[in-house]
Each structure stands twice: as C-alpha cells, then as structure tokens.
C-alpha cells in the first residue's frame, strides 16, 4: 500500500501514468475483497455444524428408516429367535431415531418435524404389527405349582406356545384369598377370626345374605345381584363393581362403586365415597349393630365420629352446584336398621 501511495505522490500529476496505477489499485482492492469474503465464509462454516441442517437430517433419518424397514421385512417367515433379535434391534434403532429427532427439533421446520414424527409413528406401529404377527402374546394364567422335577421339562418347553388348557386369571381360585364365589340363595357368614386383616372377595353371588363379622383389610364385591351384604369395619378401601338390586352395609375408609344399579348403601366412610357409571344408587348412614362392633371399629382404626356417607363424588357428573342424577340420599322413612 505504502508504495502505491508514494507512487501517487510522485506521479500524481502525471496523466499518462494515472491509468495503470488506478487499475493496479482496483485490482488490489478486488483481491482484498475476495479474501475478506473467503474469510467470512470460512468463519461462518466453522461456526455452523453440518449436523444442524435440514438436509443432513432428512438424509440421515431416511437412511436409518430404510434400515429399520428392511429389518422388519426380513422378519416374516424367519424363526422365532431371529425375529426376536431383529425386532429388538428395530426397536432400539427406532428409539435412537426418536432421540435423534428430539435433538434436532430446534432447527427443523414444522413441516419436516411433523413428517418425521409421522414416519416414526408408522415405524412403531409396523414393529408392533410384526411382533404381533411373528409371536402372538402369551396369555397369562395361573398354573398349579410345578414340582422341582418338572421344572426342567417346563423350562425346555417354555419357548413353545402355551397350551390352551391354562385357566384365565378371572377364574383362578386363590387359596389365600378369603371370600365367597358362585353362590345363590344362601346365608353366608364369616367370623371375626376368619376375616381379620384379610382381603375379602365376593363374586357372582345371587339372592344371598352375607354377614361378615370383624375387620377385613379390604373388601371387593363383583357381580352381585339381589343380595344383602353386611360387613364390619373395613380398615382401608371397598371396591364394588357390577352390583344390582342389592343392599350393602359397611364402614370403611374409602368406597369406589362402579357399574352399579338400583342398590342401597348404608355407609360409614371416613374419607369419601365415589361412584362411576352408576344409576339409582342411594346412600344412608351405616345402621348395623352387632355385639363386637365397638371393638371392631377400634381394631380397624376407623374414626367412628367421622362419617361422610352423604358426600358422594360422581365421576360422570363433574358439574359443581347441580346434584348428580345418578345417586341420592335414601329417604329417612325408607331406611332400615340391621340386626
């Protein structure tokens, strides 16, 4: 630069030498400009990461997706162990892809994002489909205890599909659970010793009168029709499901009532009672007295002075202010006392 300036000063007034001089200067300036642009480009490149480009993302995403698709398509017809391994790999890859997408959210356009999400969802469902196809779910069931000697053969056959002789959970008898099931037209009672701290289960009872003296830990009633069920203080929760035309009498901490119609509940509840999918359920205060009731209350730990029997929450009726049409307070003249 200095040289140019000097030259300018020396020959500044010399018209002949002016032209090449200017040309030279222009050339130098142009050179500098190009270098500057180059430098800027370089710094910009060093700052931005190749991974944070929509194009890079969609390329990587699609490659990975194709890879998973291929894994899945190889599953049909393959043997079980191979399928398991391939499915596992596909699931892991899908998870990775999901993570990749979550990490890339910031620089993706909403369109690219939703496209990728849809693709992922499709992958997940096709994994599920392939799994369903290749290895149908094992049905859970309780079986009799296998003896030690049987265990080896049981293990050997574990990979094979279970036979159809297994019983479903619903019908499984449980030696440890206390209660009554599949009875009609009977008077059923249990003593305080039998009931103490048990989880009581009463199912499929019709036209029965049930008296449970004492304090169970919890009580479940299911598929009850036209029964009168009286129970001592239940220290935790009572769960009622599919009960109709019946009378239920008990103290408890919580009561959940489902799918119940035309039923009267004589209740002592220390927290709250709720109903869900019920019609025509009416509530009254607990009114059964038997000789050891007072002691049983003490054993259960329930507070005898707190009874919220009339504060029922209906999960199908959340409008505050208007009372639910699904339950009512039983009129005093219609209430009974049980002995």
């Amino acid at each position: 630069m200095d040289a140019t300036v000097e030259m300018n000063m020396e020959k500044g007034f010399n018209g002949e030498n002016c032209a090449p001089n200017i040309q030279e200067r222009l050339q130098k300036r142009n050179q500098a400009r190009i270098e500057d642009a180059e430098r800027k480009k370089e710094t910009k490149q060093s700052q931005s990461v190749a991974e944070e480009k929509g194009e890079y993302f969609s390329n990587a995403f699609n490659t990975e997706r194709a890879c998973i698709d291929e894994l899945l398509s190889n599953c049909s017809g393959a043997d079980r162990a191979v399928v398991t391994q391939k499915l596992e790999e596909a699931t892991a890859k899908t998870l990775q892809l999901q993570k990749f997408l979550s990490d890339s959210i910031l620089f993706l356009t909403p369109y690219e994002l939703s496209k990728a999400q849809a693709a992922l969802q499709k992958l997940q469902s096709s994994i599920a489909e392939t799994r369903e196809e290749a290895m149908p779910k094992k049905k859970f069931a309780f079986r009799g205890r296998t003896k030690a000697s049987d265990k080896v053969s049981a293990k050997a056959s574990a990979a094979a599909p279970r036979d159809s002789a297994v019983t479903k959970v619903d019908g499984a008898p449980n030696p440890k659970q206390c209660g009554f099931t599949n009875m009609s037209n009977e008077l059923l009672t249990k003593t305080a010793e039998e009931v103490l701290n048990q989880d009581m289960l009463l199912t499929h009872l019709t036209n029965c009168k049930v008296r449970l003296y004492g304090t169970p830990s919890t009580l479940h009633l299911k598929h009850i029709d036209n029964c009168e069920i009286l129970c001592g203080p239940v220290s935790t929760s009572v769960f009622v499901d599919h009960c109709s035309n019946s009378t239920l009498v008990f103290p408890c901490q919580q009561l959940r009532t489902h799918h119940t119609t035309n039923t009267q509940v004589y209740l002592h509840v220390t927290s709250r009672a709720i109903i869900e999918d019920c019609h025509g359920v009416s509530f009254a205060p607990f009114s059964w007295s038997y000789p050891t009731l007072h002691e049983d209350f003490a054993v259960s730990g329930l507070n005898r002075d707190t009874n919220n029997w009339s504060q029922v929450d209906d999960f199908n009726w959340l409008a505050a202010g208007t009372p639910s049409p699904n339950w009512s307070v039983l009129r005093e003249e219609d209430r009974k006392t049980f002995l």
Binding site: L95, Q98, K99, S102, Q117, L120, Q121, Q124, A128, F140, V169, D170, A172, N174, Q177, D199, L201, T203, T218, H220, K222, F239
Partner: peptide, 25 residues
C-alpha cells in the same frame, strides 16, 4: 397386587402407555 380380577385391564393400560411417544424416554 391383590386385585386379580383386573390384572388384564392393568396389563392393557400399561402396554398402551408404553407406546406413547412422549413417554418414550
């Protein structure tokens, strides 16, 4: 653990949850 009658319900609800992508991680 004592509610055998609804274990199947329980399994179904859980497996549906595990498919949720917002719970994936």
């Amino acid at each position: 653990s004592a509610d055998r009658l609804r274990l199947e319900d329980c399994r179904q609800e859980l497996s549906a949850l595990l498919l949720e992508e917002r719970l994936a991680g």
